[in-house]
């Protein structure tokens, strides 16, 4: 599935009504897989599309997305395995799939109505497997707990850190990053934190992961009112974060010897995939002021043509 799709939307009120209808099918307990499959629809009644440019997705395309999602869920144990491992693996893998296959931009992904439609229509049985009690916070599209919305955004903000099966971030650790808007608002920053955390844990295996993440993020947040960490180059940011995490390990271990994590190597020099190259038409008065290559450039390239895709996925920091 290529980019630029518009997904069907279901407004909050209709989504609530739809959720009530589904719950009413089996008021005394979880719905059976057969009941859920009977309720799956590619387009729910009263759906709409956002009135912006883009190609409206078709029923066969939605069906294809559903099939891919079910295939991924099956590798995680859907529909019978309800273990924590199965749910965590599902979160990682389905987030990656939706991010790669839906072809939507952050602008669209910020619309609760497309997530409500996806959850209550196309992927209803997967959502119900993940959250059998069908809680409203999970089944509707409101941030931040909506089943698929939160996973798409994890993939958008954390990139490969969010779907790494070999060395995964745990749920609480991911939430610690994602719920802090000052951090999660800048993917470059959020990925650097995740990376520094993992490298610190790797060289200090006795450190309690959750305590470490909480403590280090508190230290990071204490700095943010007067230190703009996100403006630093990748190497500078990594150095600052490694210092913060190392200090956390030291404090949490009561002053025991701490191994410093290795510096990050091979990092991308690009700070944001949302930034575009743009050449101001007027001559810059700052000819002696240097534009740093590490942060994007005041480049000589022309602005992109109007039909150029404007959203590209972030590469790992």
């Amino acid at each position: 599935m290529s980019g630029g799709y518009l997904f069907p939307k279901l407004d909050r009120d209709r989504a609530r009504a739809r959720l009530e209808e589904i719950r009413a099918l089996c008021p005394d307990g979880p719905l059976t897989q057969t009941q859920l499959v009977d309720e799956i629809q590619m387009f729910l009644p009263d759906y709409t599309f956002e009135s912006i440019g883009g190609q409206t997705i078709t029923e066969p395309e939605l069906l294809k997305l559903r099939e891919a999602a079910v295939a991924v869920a099956t590798t995680c144990g859907f529909p019978n395995d309800h273990s924590l491992d199965a749910r965590n693996a599902f979160d990682r893998r389905i987030g990656k799939l939706l991010h790669e296959e839906m072809g939507i931009s952050p602008h669209q992904a910020a619309d609760e109505d497309i997530w409500a439609h996806l959850t209550l229509g196309v992927l209803l049985d997967l959502a119900a497997w993940r959250f059998p009690d069908l809680p409203e916070a999970r089944m509707l599209g409101r941030a931040p707990r909506s089943t698929f919305r939160r996973l798409w955004w994890r993939a958008e903000i954390l990139g490969a850190q969010s779907w790494d099966d070999e060395d995964p971030l745990f749920e609480d650790e991911t939430v610690q990053i994602m719920e802090r808007t000052e951090l999660a608002g800048v993917p470059y920053f959020a990925r650097a934190v995740a990376s520094a955390f993992k490298r610190t844990v790797a060289v200090n295996p006795t450190a309690k992961r959750m305590d470490l993440m909480r403590d280090a993020l508190k230290r990071t947040y204490r700095l943010t009112p007067f230190v703009r960490l996100e403006t630093l180059s990748p190497a500078e940011l990594d150095e600052q974060l490694r210092d913060l995490f190392t200090e956390s390990v030291r404090q949490l271990s009561g002053g025991a010897e701490v191994t410093d994590p290795l510096p990050l190597t091979g990092v991308s020099s690009k700070r944001s995939s949302y930034s575009l190259s743009f050449s101001p038409p007027r001559p810059s008065p700052s000819s002696a002021g240097k534009s740093e290559g590490q942060t994007g450039t005041v480049a000589t390239a022309s602005p992109p043509a109007a039909d150029t895709p404007t959203h590209t996925k972030n590469g790992p920091a």
Binding site: P106, A110, T181, A184, G185, V186, P187, E230, T231, R271, S272, Y274, S275, P280, R282, S284, P285, S286, S287, A288, G289, K290, S291, E292, Q294, T295, G296, T297, V298
Partner: peptide, 20 residues
């Protein structure tokens, strides 16, 4: 809820007082 940073322009004693 995204924050996007523009270019970082360095300023030193040798650079112009005005940056864009």
């Amino acid at each position: 809820t995204l924050r996007v940073l523009g270019d970082t322009i360095t300023v030193t004693a040798d650079s112009s007082a005005d940056v864009q």
